[in-house]
Simulated assay, not measured.
Amino acid sequence: MKLLRLVPAVLLAASGCAAAGSAADSAGSAASYAPGDLVVRVLTGGGFAPVSAAVTQLPEISVYGDGRVVTIGPVPGLYPGPALPNIQVRRISAADVRRLAQRGLAAGVGRGEDMGVPTNVADAPTTHITVRTASGAATTDVPAMGIDSAGDGMTADQRAARERMRQYVEDLRDLPKTLGRNSVGEAVPYEPARIAAVATPWQPSADGLPSDPPAVEWPSASALPGDPVPDRTGVNCLAVEASPVLSAANSANARTPWLSGGTRWAVEFRPLLPDESGCADLGR
């Protein structure tokens, strides 16, 4: 109970100088957010992954001040898969946005608790959890979330802290259960205004199976491959208007070569989310 009283009090101290995006008031209920404010995010990355993954990685969950909840939808078990990721958006109320933020702070996001690292797990990804507060973004990183096991060398306090974070993420994953089925709108496809093309030199398949698809002419006036991504050798990124690219990519797949300036490029598409404007916002 001491913790539940402390969190609103700390946020109240900053609310006098906070803008409309502040996180809580003296009653413990959240104040209003600007529509485009990123309020809650869960992103899991790291571990064994392709060199381009740090740029193309999509957050699992992003909640915005106007009630948009952007998530990754189901992925068909096909090879090669579709060229475009399945991103969905649902709507919740502004009051429920505040409840989700408060739930995260109560679970300990930003509190600086020791999450430990399981000693019997190697190269596992880390889950990054962010909640917007009056004083800025509160963050907590949980290495190897959900794969704790006996003999992993962690203390009881570490296990308890990790379990609170795991439960919070599970609550975010199942919003109809957390908020009530009638409180969550139906999922519809996310329509980005801009999209990042993460390009690497295209290589034909080694065994010819399945056969490589025909090349598609790059539809944007901005030529591939874009600018080199810092610390990612051979990876380039180009952010362009989404509409012409989406039209062309709907009939392509993940192995499609994209022809630009006479050169074929392999492209991973990363739709930019409402709080992102270009390649510099990716991989942060």
Results as ranks from 00 to 15, higher is better:
134 A>L: 01
134 A>K: 01
134 A>Q: 02
134 A>H: 01
134 A>N: 15
135 S>K: 04
135 S>C: 06
135 S>P: 10
136 G>L: 08
137 A>V: 02
137 A>W: 10
137 A>I: 03
137 A>H: 08
138 A>Q: 01
138 A>E: 02
138 A>R: 05
139 T>L: 04
139 T>S: 09
139 T>H: 03
140 T>A: 04
140 T>L: 09
140 T>G: 04
140 T>N: 15
141 D>H: 11
141 D>F: 14
141 D>M: 13
142 V>I: 06
142 V>W: 00
142 V>L: 00
143 P>M: 06
143 P>T: 12
143 P>K: 03
143 P>S: 10
144 A>R: 03
145 M>H: 03
145 M>L: 09
145 M>V: 01
146 G>P: 09
146 G>D: 01
147 I>P: 07
147 I>Q: 11
147 I>W: 10
147 I>T: 14
148 D>T: 00
148 D>A: 07
148 D>P: 00
148 D>G: 02
148 D>R: 02
148 D>M: 10
149 S>K: 02
149 S>W: 11
150 A>M: 09
150 A>K: 10
150 A>C: 05
150 A>G: 15
151 G>F: 12
151 G>P: 09
151 G>T: 02
151 G>C: 07
151 G>H: 05
152 D>H: 12
152 D>P: 14
152 D>E: 14
152 D>Y: 13
153 G>F: 03
153 G>I: 01
153 G>R: 00
154 M>T: 14
154 M>P: 14
154 M>N: 13
154 M>I: 10
154 M>A: 02
155 T>W: 01
155 T>Q: 06
156 A>F: 09
156 A>W: 12
156 A>E: 13
156 A>H: 14
156 A>T: 11
157 D>N: 15
157 D>W: 10
157 D>Q: 12
158 Q>A: 07
158 Q>N: 08
158 Q>P: 05
158 Q>S: 05
159 R>T: 09
159 R>K: 13
159 R>A: 04
160 A>K: 11
160 A>S: 13
161 A>H: 12
161 A>Q: 06
161 A>K: 01
162 R>Q: 08
162 R>T: 00
162 R>W: 05
163 E>V: 07
163 E>A: 13
163 E>H: 10
163 E>S: 13
163 E>D: 12
163 E>P: 10
163 E>C: 04
163 E>Q: 10
